[in-house]
Design a protein around this nucleic acid. Structure first.
Length: 583
RNA sequence: GGGCGAUUAGUGUAGCUUGGAUAUCACCUUGGAUUUCUAAUCCGAGAACACGGGUUCGAAUCCUGUAUCGCCCA
């Protein structure tokens, strides 16, 4: 059950009627068609047409024009509820019965696109931390929103299984004892005490990674050892790649466990080394030499000169092949994109803003190779109040600990409200509330805005957050249980609908429009807004309209309750909030 | 030094692509309702578009300059 974009359809239905009225009034051209859109002022109508631009042509005041357009509009269309003129606008309200009909008979939408969304793709060098969470939450929210819109989505994780981070980790595990690690980290002033998740490999092994980084500063032999490993990995040396894998795989598994706790999972994993092994990187490097942008540096390295392509600054060269003939990270990224296009007909990458330049360079190189560019969503960093997070320096908040804390705080709240409830459901509810709140607090912020991590904000259970929505959903479930199985009516009686019911119907009708809008603008926060508003509208409806009155069941209210329950549940699914049926 | 992005009540935020009505939702301060089918509720009041210039009948929204913050390049 997916539903349709009702407001978009309403505009389409109404367009011909407007055309007639507009002609009669004497307005020329078609410009007005693009101005007919969703009302900014929801209290006035669902869609509206501003008449200010016509006043010059017609030499009349906008409100006069609006009024005469309204005169000529044939409001007998079933979709039109009300047409009014106000303050120079023509406002149309959708007909409630029309909206209800469509809510009750949603049409399946066929998915035409296969979209591959690559997100998170964090280096497997330590536990998943809060700085990386934004990528995962945004990425997974996109995955969920596209699925809610009926599309065929693959969630993809690019595993950086070679190169520096993994090289250091591998070197450390092969060359340092636990005593080495502890003494190095103590001197470097990095915490060595393992927390409650100390049994996980990601938490254990990150100490080795940090120790090797600290040691590297003083001991040049570390660099030599690591560099040798990296070089071999870039030649796709099977022995080294397999040692690397032994080093990082348990760490990656630990990270994925954390992500799974947040409701985030992946459909496919692709290793960077794959593109060296299969030779595709080599082929790409050869064909880049035919590019007009191609150049060779003194040391024999190959690059593309991007100055003419709008890359500014001191370094306009995009190096894709070293002097010794080997490839670079970015080169493998090109091969990766080529491969991704074989898996889907749309690509979406979720990247931190620090990757903007790199992404642009890769984009130009892809163009040179006649490979389409992916769509990219950039997000600003999450930083700690005292600076950027860094796994290397040990300046991090681990996601495992944040989720524990979130669960703990949720538990305190739930215990206070529900003293009647048994331990087991208490734990389940608080975990769901903790995870949902953490996600929602990230998803509801516009991606390009920087976030400063503060415990109070991250764990806020205030009204403008997930629990408010979850509780609304649980409430609708409770009422549904109370009412029991009933034969629901197939429509509503307008005469007994109050304002809160009408607002609720309007809100539900806009779900798919809001979802599409959020997807198209790449702003999940817009859909989060709709969902918060939906919960609020449901609560107002609930206060005014009882379903169970004594022994009687009000079937119309039950129908609306059931619709609201369904919309809340689907909305929650689409943003990664867990829709509990009881809390 | 150059490039990109951000700046909205005491706080956190929405709206900005496509200029238009009373600038969103909360926290907060404050007044009230109801105690139900789950009160993690509902209704009301208070307070904001960084600063300057431009385009326009009309600018939070577009252009431009300045300041501050973040990211990147060197």
């Amino acid at each position: 059950m997916l539903g349709v974009e009702q407001m978009r359809d309403l505009i389409e239905e109404v367009l011909p009627v407007f055309e007639i009225a507009i002609n009669k009034v004497g307005i020329e051209g078609n410009h007005w068609k693009s101005m007919l859109g969703r009302s900014r002022e929801a209290s006035q109508g669902d869609i509206s047409l501003p008449c200010f631009p016509f006043s010059k042509q017609l030499r009349l005041a906008p409100d006069v024009i609006a009024e005469s357009i309204v005169e000529y509009i044939d409001s007998s269309l079933p979709s039109i509820g009300e047409v009014t003129a106000s303050g120079g606008y023509v406002n149309i309200r959708a007909d409630i019965e029309w909206l209800m009909d469509r809510l009750l008979s949603p049409q399946e939408k066929q998915s035409q696109e296969r979209i591959l969304i690559e997100h998170t793709s964090a280096n497997p060098n330590g536990p998943f931390h809060v700085g990386r969470a934004r990528n995962a939450v945004l990425g997974d929210t996109f995955v969920r929103m596209y699925r809610a819109a009926g599309q065929d989505v693959t969630a993809e994780y690019y595993v950086d299984d070679m190169g520096k981070q993994v090289g250091i980790l591998c070197w450390a595990l092969e060359n340092l004892t636990i005593e080495n690690v502890e003494s190095i980290l103590e001197k470097a002033n990095i915490e060595t005490e393992l927390g409650p998740h100390g049994d996980k490999a990601d938490h254990q092994r990150v100490l080795w990674y940090q120790a090797a980084n600290a040691l590297k500063e003083k001991d040049p032999s570390v660099d030599a050892g690591v560099t040798e490993l990296i070089q071999l990995s870039e030649e796709a040396d099977p022995d080294v790649l397999s040692r690397f894998e032994s080093a990082y795989q348990p760490v990656l598994d630990g990270m994925l466990e954390t992500l799974a706790r947040m409701g985030i999972s992946f459909d496919s994993f692709t290793k960077e080394s794959r593109f060296i092994v299969d030779g595709s990187v080599e082929v790409l490097m050869d064909s880049l030499e035919n590019s007009e942008l191609h150049g060779t540096a003194e040391n024999g390295a190959h690059f593309l000169e991007l100055e003419t392509k709008g890359v500014k600054g001191k370094s306009t060269k995009f190096f894709y092949r070293r002097g010794d003939g080997s490839s670079l990270y970015a080169t493998r990224d090109l091969a990766y994109h080529q491969w991704k296009w074989s898996q889907a007909n749309r690509l979406l990458n979720i990247l931190g803003e620090d990757h903007k330049l790199q992404s642009k360079q890769v984009g130009i190189a892809l163009e040179e190779l006649k490979i389409k560019n992916p769509d990219v969503v950039f997000y600003a960093f999450t930083k700690l109040a005292d600076g950027k997070m860094s796994t290397r320096r040990g300046n991090v908040v681990f996601m495992d600990d944040l989720l524990d804390e979130a669960q703990g705080r949720a538990l305190a709240v739930v215990q206070e409200i529900r003293s009647d409830i048994e331990e087991e459901s208490l734990a389940k509810i608080s975990e769901a509330v903790g995870v949902s709140s953490t996600r929602f607090n990230i998803a509801r912020i516009s991606p390009e805005k920087g976030i400063t991590f503060r415990w109070e904000d991250a764990l806020s259970l205030e009204k403008d957050s997930a629990p408010f929505i979850m509780y609304s959903h649980a409430r609708s479930c409770s009422i549904s249980r109370r009412a029991g199985a009933q034969l629901l009516p197939t429509g509503v009686d307008m005469k007994v609908l109050d304002e809160t019911a009408i607002a609720l119907i309007r809100r539900m009708a806009k779900m798919q429009d809001e979802l599409q809008n959020a997807i198209q603008l790449a702003r999940p926060n817009l859909f989060c807004d709709w969902l918060s508003g939906m919960a609020g509208d449901y609560n107002r409806f609930y206060r005014e309209n009882h379903v169970v009155v004594g022994d009687e069941i009000n079937l119309q209210n039950l129908l609306l309750n059931e619709l609201a329950r369904d919309h809340l549940r689907r909305g929650c699914d689409a943003v990664g909030i867990i829709p509990l049926e009881e809390m």
